[in-house]
Simulated scan of single mutants.
Amino acid sequence: MDKALPIRKAFCVLSAVAVAVVLASCSSQQPAADKPVENGANASEPVQVAWSPDMDCTTCHTAEGATMEDGAMGACTHVQQAQAVCGTCHTDEASLAGVHEGATATDTMPKKLKATTVDAKTCQAAGCHDESQDEMLALTADVADLTDSQGTQVNPHEVMGKTAGHADILCTDCHTMHKAKVNAADTCVSCHHAGVYECNTCH
């Protein structure tokens, strides 16, 4: 008779008991997904984070964050040349706090700013684009981006403030930071929909 047989039988019995104990302990535990977390909140619910001016916006706004590292984007130029951060340009803290109230990282990110804007005064702050009106006009005197269907060429910075409607044009309507360069004339088309820059020719 094999002397090792009783030892093997004992080992098999002990192994079976150990497996049974492990299975019993696993089956008696509540599934992790159903376990309540502190304060009775469900772990699957998105966590709301209070917005603050010094937080890392790119945690949620990943698409915009990526443009800050993309050399083809205006945002990247601002980061590299002026060490700009989100709060350098997005300064409307009251509106930003309001739109972020109750927001979570899993929310759908907006495609465009609606409740807050980047004010022209922010762009023209000291050390940034602080040229005078005449200097700004001189910089874009030869820019032909705004040429209408009749061949009339308009200096982009000359129209700013020219009439009540033009006063509402923001720097960011033509100068986009977080997407590829857009045609500045697209801003004009919303009013000059016939492609003519002379007023009172359509209606």
Rank of each mutant, 00 (worst) to 15 (best):
D92M: 09
D92C: 08
D92T: 06
E93V: 15
A94R: 11
L96D: 02
L96P: 08
L96Q: 08
A97S: 12
G98R: 13
V99L: 15
E101N: 11
G102W: 03
A103S: 11
T104S: 13
T104K: 08
T104C: 05
A105K: 04
T106E: 10
D107L: 01
D107G: 12
D107F: 02
M109E: 05
P110I: 02
K111L: 03
K111T: 06
K112N: 09
A115H: 12
A115R: 10
A115Y: 07
A115K: 15
T116H: 12
V118C: 05
V118S: 07
V118E: 00
D119C: 07
K121Y: 00
T122K: 08
T122V: 12
T122L: 04
C123A: 11
C123I: 05
Q124Y: 05
A125V: 00
A125S: 14
G127S: 03
G127C: 05
C128H: 14
H129P: 00
H129M: 10
D130P: 09
E131K: 12
E131F: 13
S132E: 03
S132H: 05
S132L: 05
D134L: 10
D134A: 15
E135K: 12
E135F: 00
M136R: 15
L137E: 03
T140H: 14
T140C: 14
A141V: 09
V143A: 15
V143T: 10
D145M: 07
L146M: 05
T147I: 01
Q150V: 02
G151E: 02
T152N: 13
T152Y: 05
Q153C: 02
Q153V: 09
N155G: 03
N155T: 00
P156T: 00
H157Y: 09
H157Q: 09
E158M: 15
E158N: 13
V159W: 06
V159C: 15
V159K: 14
M160I: 11
M160S: 10
G161S: 05
G161V: 04
K162E: 00
K162D: 01
K162M: 05
T163M: 05
G165A: 08
G165I: 03
H166A: 10
H166W: 13
A167P: 03
A167F: 02
D168R: 15
D168Y: 10
D168P: 12
I169Q: 06
I169F: 15
L170E: 01
D173H: 13
D173W: 07
C174Y: 00
C174L: 00
H175Q: 04
T176Y: 10
T176F: 10
M177H: 15
K181G: 04
K181P: 01
